Amino acid sequence: MCVADSRATTPASAEGAARPSAGNLVPALHGAFRAATDGVLTAAASHCVPEALRSPGLAVVRTGRAPARFACSLLFGAARTVWGHRAAPAGATAAPAGCAAFSLTLRPGRPPRAPRTPEGTATA
């Protein structure tokens, strides 16, 4: 049984270097996603769980994340089947990038600064 090499190849430029493509960005973005979520989600959830229940509470968070990743892999497989091997990775690259850009609009602004008083004056 012969298995074809599934790695995507990109045409070389005039200098001989490969051009970046969406297929190259997807693994990089997925790695950044994993690095950001594994520690950040656990740290964020640890403040919401009482200390006595911290271990089982964080286990529930991590267990809930596993089916979500599984569902995402199924959806990506379906998208790749329907849209093809070039459009699906491009969509998988654009969607998280768009979500990240949108999330910047949801961040609260800086709190207002307290008025500065000249040195040597008493404040009430």
Rank of each mutant, 00 (worst) to 15 (best):
A101Y: 01
T81M: 11
R65A: 13
A90T: 13
G91K: 03
A78I: 12
C72S: 14
T63W: 06
L74N: 05
A79K: 07
A94L: 15
A78L: 15
R65Q: 11
A101S: 09
A97V: 15
S103L: 14
A66Y: 04
C99A: 15
R54T: 10
A87K: 05
F70T: 06
A88L: 06
C99K: 02
A100Q: 00
R69T: 09
H85C: 08
P96K: 00
F70S: 04
A87R: 09
P96C: 05
P96Q: 04
L53W: 05
G91M: 12
T81P: 00
A94G: 05
A78S: 11
G77A: 15
S103K: 09
A92N: 05
A94P: 02
S73C: 02
A87W: 03
A59R: 11
G91C: 03
G77F: 10
T93H: 01
A90W: 07
G84S: 06
P89D: 07
H85G: 12
S73F: 04
T105S: 14
R69W: 07
L74D: 03
A68S: 13
G64H: 09
T81A: 11
V61R: 00
F102K: 00
T81V: 01
A97P: 05
T81Y: 07
G98S: 13
L53C: 01
F70W: 11
L74F: 11
P96I: 00
F76P: 03
A101E: 02
G64C: 12
G57Y: 02
V61E: 00
A101K: 00
T105Q: 07
A68H: 06
R69C: 09
R69D: 06
P89F: 03
A101Q: 02
A94C: 08
A100L: 12
A97L: 15
G57Q: 01
R80K: 11
R69F: 08
A95P: 06
W83S: 14
G57D: 02
R69S: 10
A101L: 13
R80D: 10
A101D: 02
P56H: 04
A71M: 12
A71Y: 03
P67E: 05
A97R: 03
W83T: 12
R86I: 11
R86W: 11
A100T: 03
T105F: 13
P96L: 01
R65K: 05
T63I: 08
A90D: 07
W83G: 14
R62A: 12
A68D: 05
A101T: 02
G91R: 06
W83Y: 15
A94I: 09
F70R: 01
P96R: 00
L74V: 13
P67L: 08
W83P: 06
L75V: 06
A68R: 05
L58Q: 08
T105P: 01
C72I: 08
A101R: 00
A90L: 14
G98V: 09
R86A: 14
S55E: 14
A87P: 07
G91W: 08
S103G: 13
S103N: 07
A79F: 10
A90F: 06
A87T: 12
G84R: 02
A94E: 01
T63V: 11
A95K: 03
L104V: 06
P96V: 01
A68G: 12
R80N: 12
A79D: 09
G57C: 02
T93E: 05
R69P: 00
